[in-house]
Write a protein that binds this DNA or RNA. Structure first.
Lengths: 345, 345
DNA sequence: AACGTTTTCTTAACCGGTAAAGTCTCTATC
DNA sequence: GATAGAGACTTTACCGGTTAAGAAAACGTT
């Protein structure tokens, strides 16, 4: 990619027009002391006339601030578009960045290793002032890499996964337990969970919590399926869970996001099973989608937008030099709607 | 935001370690001729040992390529998270950028004017090599601004809105006409459209096309409602359309995106109206969502991911110096599913 | 009037690269 | 044996800002 020729106006032109030196223009534009009001005004006037604004690249190189933060997401591009979670999370991040006139550098990567390399390039190249790291896995290589680089980041994930990095996280295990307890309290004894990719740390934590709770409650049946979070995978998982004989199949299913829950809903309908009469469904994340289906979806609800806001705020804190910290955001809360009820039996 | 102190290794260190000059290192890393294989190898070795990678900021300033493209979206952050369209579009863009080791600089803005200022800052500051412009309105100020700057962009919008800019677009008017004709062919005489914001160019083009087609077909009733694309707005619009007496209300509704169609579906259910028996619904964009509802949603279907791919490819073309051009992508095609049928009457 | 302070502005070095022009060595040619 | 040309580097001048150090003018003091 080459730059196209364009008559760029630089600080020198402004200086010439205002009849001062480059340095003076720099002082004016950084609101630093050492200039009279008159010259200051003259400089701004000249800049306005020429339509000049400081070149951020040069400014960055010269060693001042960087007004970009990075976000690399390690999922296939196609799946990403379907996940309401990320877009909502990003919109929360953006709303904070915008306040700081800061932009988001976004990149999809294929592997964690690729992400490590990318973050290093970004940081070394002063492309970013810090990064938001997501989708932690157990023994995530980013923890060590980032510490080695001394790069400011916020880790979106449970502290047990993010090492000494400042983290923003939700208490997933508690939420899973609450979800299962709720279904059990309704009378369900055979409960399934359609989860995310096993490699993801938060997914495996949910898996463990589900197991623990199922044992503690002495459920008669407990299934877990790993998926890629897509609607298709959710549909497939639901179909295979529900094809068992009525006495052997789950009477309640918990999903790890809401797109899979919506898919599960239509699979139930297609199989002639009533929701919540024959099977109860419980979604996760609770985007607007859950209120748009029929029946409406009960869900473990949390404020994903607010999650993004908190992540961005925390990152700014780290960049400003705050020490490492742990920032839990509210645990998803159960929001019962039309898709959960006691089993008919 | 200030940079944290970190011992950065620069080209000078590598040069010293390899026992050559800065220039030689630069030649090696840009794969330019003029170095023996031996030195080249020695330089890479030194770089590897020191963990050095070229500083992109410096490289950019020195006047070579810029491996970032910009995308500013002018919608409230909260609404954005709910729109499957953008995330899917972005994922298409990303998939092309990734091939070129290029990142996306994303920013939400409040107004077009703010976007003009931002694009100018980005471009002047060499932050980006080009931009993808979306959400064109009539007499969009970006057209003139971008031409003045001589900045490479691809305009996602109908050529009638994007002036002389290279554009990537879908023939919305044709699609609207097809949608209405299809419903009319099914026997519907009272048809409504729940559209997007009136200020958006493509929305007003759809409005005009709907009007024209309604008149041409001499429909007995034709309504249009402008919304902000949110599910809530779609629900509200649907509710108000369907509260009229059975003989006066629409028997078919076309939506401008699929989230509103899903919302419409649940409003119909809540009002005790059968879909498609009492009212037919037709969605737009056709994300996975349309196949997950019950009944499944008929939709004007297009490949949004592919749309993003084409936009990114075209932008690379412009950056490489291709002249202005117009790149239509396939017109959305009607995909009948379970939500449309002849009116019961 | 001489002198120390401020205030205001200029100079010049630097950030970390790129690239055009220059230097030096080695080989081929007549 | 002088000359030219190619190959392998080095030098040096930017890119467009920031910033520490320096200089000139304005001011208050004694």
């Amino acid at each position: 990619m080459t730059a196209t020729p364009a008559p760029r106006v630089t600080i020198k032109d402004v200086a010439a027009r205002a009849g001062v030196s480059k340095g003076a223009v720099s002082l004016a534009f950084n609101h630093k002391p050492g200039l009279s009001e008159a010259t200051r005004e003259r400089i701004f006037e000249a800049a306005r006339e020429l339509g000049w604004a400081p070149n951020l690249t040069a400014r960055t190189l010269a060693g001042s601030r960087v007004d970009v933060v990075g976000l690399a997401i390690c999922r296939p591009a196609r799946l990403l578009g379907l996940e309401p979670f990320y877009m909502e999370f990003i919109s929360g991040v953006e709303s904070v960045l915008t306040e700081h006139s800061c932009s988001l550098l976004l990149r999809l990567v294929r592997t964690v290793e690729e992400e490590v390399a990318l973050q290093e390039t970004w940081w070394r190249g002063r492309q970013i002032g810090g990064s938001i790291l997501v989708d932690f896995r157990t023994d995530d290589p980013r923890v060590a890499a980032v510490e080695r680089l001394g790069m400011p980041v916020v880790a979106v994930g449970h502290p047990s996964l993010t090492g000494a990095l400042t983290s923003v996280w939700t208490e997933d295990a508690t939420a899973v337990t609450e979800a299962v307890r709720y279904l059990a309290a309704l009378g369900h004894r055979r409960i399934a969970r359609v989860g995310g990719a096993a490699a993801l740390g938060h997914s495996s934590m949910r898996t463990a919590a589900f197991d623990r709770t199922a044992r503690a409650l002495e459920l008669a049946g407990a299934w877990q399926v790993a998926t890629d979070y897509s609607g298709e995978a959710g549909a497939r998982a639901t179909r295979s869970l529900l094809t068992a004989a009525p006495a052997d199949r789950p009477t309640a299913i918990v999903y790890d996001n809401d797109i899979m829950a919506v898919a599960g809903l239509s699979v139930a309908a297609e199989m002639g099973l009533g929701v919540p009469d024959d099977v109860s469904l419980l979604a996760w994340d609770d985007s607007q989608l859950c209120r748009l289906t029929h029946p409406t979806l009960s869900a473990m609800s949390h404020d994903v937008h607010g999650f993004g806001v908190e992540a961005a705020r925390t990152l700014f804190g780290v960049i400003m030099g705050e020490g490492p910290g742990s920032h839990p955001v509210p645990t998803p809360v159960l929001t019962p709607r039309g898709s959960t009820a006691p089993p008919k039996v």
